[in-house]
Each structure stands twice: as C-alpha cells, then as structure tokens.
Design a protein around this nucleic acid. Sequence first.
DNA 1: ACCTGAACACCGTTCAAGT
DNA 2: ACCTGAACACCGTTCAAGT
Lengths: 215, 215
Amino acid sequence: MLLDERVDTAPRRRRARGSLSRHEILDAALHVVETRGLRLLSMPTLARQLGSGATSIYKYFPSKEALVEALATQVVQDIRQRLPPIGVRKWDVELFGYFSSFRELLATHRAYLELVAYGPAAFVHLALTEDARRRLDDGLDLLATAGLDRRAAIEAFTACLNYTRGFVLLASRATVPGRPGSAWDADLRIIDVFDADQFSHGLRLLIAGIRAEAT
Amino acid sequence: MLLDERVDTAPRRRRARGSLSRHEILDAALHVVETRGLRLLSMPTLARQLGSGATSIYKYFPSKEALVEALATQVVQDIRQRLPPIGVRKWDVELFGYFSSFRELLATHRAYLELVAYGPAAFVHLALTEDARRRLDDGLDLLATAGLDRRAAIEAFTACLNYTRGFVLLASRATVPGRPGSAWDADLRIIDVFDADQFSHGLRLLIAGIRAEAT
DNA sequence: ACCTGAACACCGTTCAAGT
DNA sequence: ACCTGAACACCGTTCAAGT
C-alpha cells in the first residue's frame, strides 16, 4: 500500500481525483514515524511518501496536529488489541503478567514511544474508550478477588497503570545512545537504567503493597 | 536583569561589545520558557527578549539544542537545591515526605515540566551529578534503617524515584484544559486524574511493599 | 470535487560584513 | 573580538487556479 519515497528528478504524476484517503495518509504517516521518527514527519515528507502535493493532505486533516492526534488514537487502539487478556491465575500473578506484557508492548512499539514522548499533549487521555473501560473492569474484578473493595481496587489498578506508563515514558526520554556514562559506582548506576528488570522490581513492590493492604 | 520584549517599531540599538553572556542568555531563555512555554522559545523570540540579533546567540551556544540542554541542567540543579533533606523520623514517614515534596516541587515548576515534556532527549540523565549522588546515599541509608540490604535499598529507592518522575511526566502530558471529559462513571474517571491524592495512593502502596519485603 | 504550486510567515543556522 | 543583517533551506498553512 505504501509507495517508496521518490528519488528521481522527473516531476511526479498528478494523483487521480479520488485516490487519496484518510486511511492512506495515516498509513504513510505511521510508516514515517516508525522508520524515521515523529520529529522527521513533516507535511512535505509525508506528501513525498504519498506521491502527492503537501497541501492535498489538508482536504483530509485540518492541521498537522489533528493528523498526529488521529495517528496516536489509532496506535493506542492497535496496542490495546494486542494486549493479552487477564487470565485465571492468582490475582498477583495475573497482575504482574498483565503489566509486564503492557510495558513490553509499549517499549517495543516505536510509533507509540515517539508519539507519547513528542506527540500531542492529549496523548495520555486517548485511552478513554469503551474497550479500555472493559479492560479496566477486568482489572477491578481481579483485584476484588484479592479482597480489595471497589475504591481500593481503582486506586491500586491506577497506581500500577501510572507506574507502567510513566516508566515507559521516562525510559523513552532516557535513550541517548551516544551519551557518556555517569561517574557513579557500578552498583549505583542502576538507578538510571530503564530495563525490564528495573521495571519488575518496582511492579513487585507495588503488588506486595496491594497484598499488604488487602490483608 | 531581564528586558521587556520590545513592541515599538524603532530599530533597536546595537548591543555593546561585551554585554552579552551565557548567563544572560540562559536567564532570558528561562523567562520565556516559564511565561510562554518551551515551544514558543525560538531564536528570534529569545533575541527580542535580549535586545540582540538572533545570530549573536551562536557565539555562546553552538545550537539551540545545546542552549536548551544547558538550561535544563540549570533547572534540574536548581530544583535539587530546593528539595528538603531527609530528616530523622521513621523511614516510611521520611520516604513518603521526601517523594511527596519532590513531586510537588516538580509539578509546580513550569520550566521543569516544559523541559521534561518537550525538551532534550538527554533530560532524564541530567540528574547524575555528585549532589544527586549524595541525596541517593541519604536515601539508601534511610532504607537501611528499614532493614533492607544494599541491593534491595537501591531497587526500592529507584522504584520510588521512577514512580515519582514518571507520574509527573505523565501528568504534564495529560494537562489539556479545553478537553471534554470522558463518558465514564465518575468513580472510574479517577484513573485519568493526576493530582496529589492519586500520586499519594501509589506511593503508599510502594512503601507498604517495601515494608513487606523488609520483614 | 479534488488536487495543485505559488506564496506567506515563520524557523534554525551560516557567513561575510560591519564596528 | 564581538555583534549584525542578509541569505539559505526548511516548516505549517492559505488560497486562487488548474483538471
């Protein structure tokens, strides 16, 4: 569906009248974000990808900001569909597995990282769909089996969610490959590492805290 | 020290030869970021603030990116100096107070929020100074009084730090005033609110988890 | 109706020229 | 030595003109 960017000097052909669409534009934008990053997504870049004029995009999106927000919404929905459902094991095992999967999914999805780190301010709120609501209800049911009342369950689930999303966001802002390491001792440098182990330690503490609160 | 932005149409006077400095440029940049936001900080804007030509800034900073990174470093150091030291109360009380103060300091410091949300990728790593190291040592000593060994203390302190910085970062990306509220029930909407209470719940769970691990 | 290039007001940055 | 405007290659967006 995606056209390669044109490198030849011949003038491109005019696109047929009904050939452009919101879907194709979002597809091309996603491709640019995944391969080059959000900061290299410009209307001219995107137009070259589409083989169209940059101004044609404005028939489908009122502004670049609106386009990026539509893209972000799509990416968030796509990620939620890939998230495995909560299973039937003991609540603490399921909770740990659920948020570990969530973190890994986010951390390996370049478009998500680009959009959450540099994208629209509203990004954090995009999750508020009915599908997200269903996932939340599943999480609350799970925490009910741990003995938490509704209010405590909401607070606990929110804490895990905030920890996970915040961790991924921090990590995405911390990935600077060419950076010299700090001068700290080897065992202290861990404080600035954002790998899966580091994430797991914190998540385990949260779950231990929930367990303590439940009993 | 800061000049008001000029609004008159008369051509501004040429600045005297030694009158510009890194310090004055950073001061003016901080003022723009605090009052207008990082995205409205441009070289022309900054130059108007300084009453200089935009190109003069390049004698002191090789690029806008370098300027913003220098500003970010300064802001992080300033925040750390305002952070109250860890006291002598019981470890869980001190830990809660320390990270609550930290969160509030970050959340009320507009320049920090702008820079962490939209600033240089390296921002998260800027904290790695000797002063930060001293604060970390204090935290590890505190957790030692809870009965944690060195490794567990590092993991626990890191978890609290990541939770706090991640929460503030998420919150700063979620502040969209003109946004219509979600259609969810009122008691579920809490999951998308990033206030001090929400933060405290998670921090309390983390600390309860540390307590459970220590015994 | 949809697609288009020219044009506008910006931006970061370079550079030769002022003082 | 330091400060400067002109100039360059970009960007988002508007709009009148093509097809």
